[in-house]
Amino acid sequence: MQQVIEGYRQVAPAMRAEGDTVVLDANGVYYQQLNEAIRSAVSAGARNIRIENANGQRYIGAGLRARDLRIEVHGTAGNDLASFMDGPTVEVFGNAQDGVGNTMASGKVVVHGDAGDVLGYGMRGGRVYVRGDVGYRVGIHMKAYESLVPVVVCGGKARDFFGEYMAGGVLVLLGMNTQFPGDPIAGSFLGTGMHGGVIYVRGDVEPWQCGKEVGVAEASDADMAELRPILEDYCAALGLDLDEVLAQPFTRIVPVSHRPYGKLYAYL
């Protein structure tokens, strides 16, 4: 008997091979069966997987660890895409929903459309590139450790709490490919509670947008030297023009202290 959950059938997706690529048809398939099929293809040795007709299935790529694995998603990737992922590359030809790269350890996610809220939450390594807009709470509590430095580049605009509690890594906001030309590039509370890492914004941000824990300045030549290779890679991944991205000066936002609450307490 076939069970239907939230409109999805609990059946394995149709699978076929095209050269060395495993192609999965996600049409109407529940996420558990889809991800199960991905995992068994990976353990059978597949290193190129293409998912067609994705329609909001969650957790694609979650917890996968094969470094040479490539997953293409055609359609809309559901929540928590690439969460806890450590190594693979995921490319979405469409939009992604909330929680992209949640607690991701390494690897790469490229989204050719827009993405939703809480992108890159607790991310500790790897890269997430989004061509268009992102939602609220993006880059919260990203952190870096030694050679592990997470990088998130958002090509459109962001909502409130961009980079809140940020503890490490690089978070970049370009404000270019946006559906909201009239809106400010970021919402309020940018970098609130930030205590590590750096945020680059193409253009200016107003003081009211920023948390009190950050300092704001125009990016120096040295900063741009750090940023340039990231943007090169971003433009290459999404087929964008680097010169156009660099045509405007960038603003650099860093924490004033890496111990923002160090003086808050008195010990009993």
Partner: peptide, 8 residues
């Protein structure tokens, strides 16, 4: 996380 930063 880096040494000496607060773990929040």
């Amino acid at each position: 996380i880096p040494q000496g930063t607060d773990a929040i």
